[in-house]
Design a protein around this nucleic acid. Structure first.
Lengths: 165, 165
DNA sequence: ACAACCAGTTGCAAATCGCAATCAGTTAGG
DNA sequence: CCTAACTGATTGCGATTTGCAACTGGTTGT
């Protein structure tokens, strides 16, 4: 990992960290799929990342302070990966990217439903979801709201499509 | 350009098109730097893209419908690259990415000022800027507003920082 | 004891990247 | 005209990154 530093432009610096085909997918799976272990990220993703790439990206994301790793008390070899606040704040980036992809690219119905809901929900829903992530990844206390969480609503919508309404 | 199609997820599909270190920088320069010719994109960027990569990315962006190319009437070899509506709608993605980079990465003051203004301006300012881009890239008529345009304001702020207030 | 599971690592071929040199056509100046 | 500078690229080549498969060393459940 050599720090290139091509320029001090915020977009360029972001791309130097996240500008590849896998890093944001890992973040996506941690956010929306609740994948927290190496094996979950490796096998339960749509795209099929290979283990060496996954190991390399997790290392980079750790170094960049986007995720953290702690030992799983139930298994000496397992690690639990969590998003940091910095990582959680990538949600708006992913949400905008998902909205753009949903609008212009050949998205399948099952995998597009989350993007549609998140786009329709707008920044207010994003903020609510980020609060939920702060609870599950940072252990932060969250002001409870009535009804199902954003995460639950997204998951329910996905399953609804898969099971044919 | 093989169409991989790893999955129909909107985030994945977006990354298959834009997930590299240069594509979004080219879009950035077309949006904020008003670069419209090959040579401008090649030489007037902070990061120094090489000509073969630039040619390849422009080709891909053309194929994807994110930009268009037309002949420059003043020079038989020159082409004018323009953003399509699809390309213009990448602005929110870039804006969120810039805001994140501005907050968490070692951004220089000169190159960060645009990100700060755009972040503070929020979606309303983005929409206004996108309307300006529709005018300059698509030839669309725009409802004129009083005062300087968003593009002018961003440029003025940048120069103000460079010249030491 | 043994099979399944865990987080990675290694080896290697293929693809991509980055740099410099080069190309052929176009334009401006003398 | 003639030439020099400029146009959008293309080519060659070494270095890096990727993708795949096999493998490692350790842990857990039966």
């Amino acid at each position: 990992m050599t720090d290139a530093q091509r320029s001090g432009c915020p977009i360029n610096l972001s791309l130097e960290v996240l500008g590849d085909k896998w890093s944001l997918l890992i973040i996506r799976d941690m956010m929306f799929g609740n994948r927290r272990h190496f094996r979950e990220l490796l096998t339960k993703s749509e795209e099929g990342i290979s283990s060496n790439i996954l190991a390399d990206r997790l290392k980079t994301l750790l170094e960049q302070g986007i995720i953290t790793r702690e030992d799983d008390p139930t298994h000496k070899q397992k690690g639990i990966y969590s998003l940091t606040e910095q990582g959680i704040e990538l949600l708006p980036v992913l949400a905008q990217m998902a909205a753009w992809g949903y609008k212009y690219l050949p998205v399948t119905e099952e995998l597009g439903i989350r993007a549609r809901l998140l786009s329709e929900g707008g920044p207010k829903m994003w903020a609510e979801f980020m609060d939920e992530l702060r609870e599950s990844h940072l252990g932060a206390k969250r002001r409870r709201r009535g009804g199902p969480s954003v995460g639950e609503r997204l998951q329910a919508a996905y399953e609804s499509v898969v099971n044919g309404n």
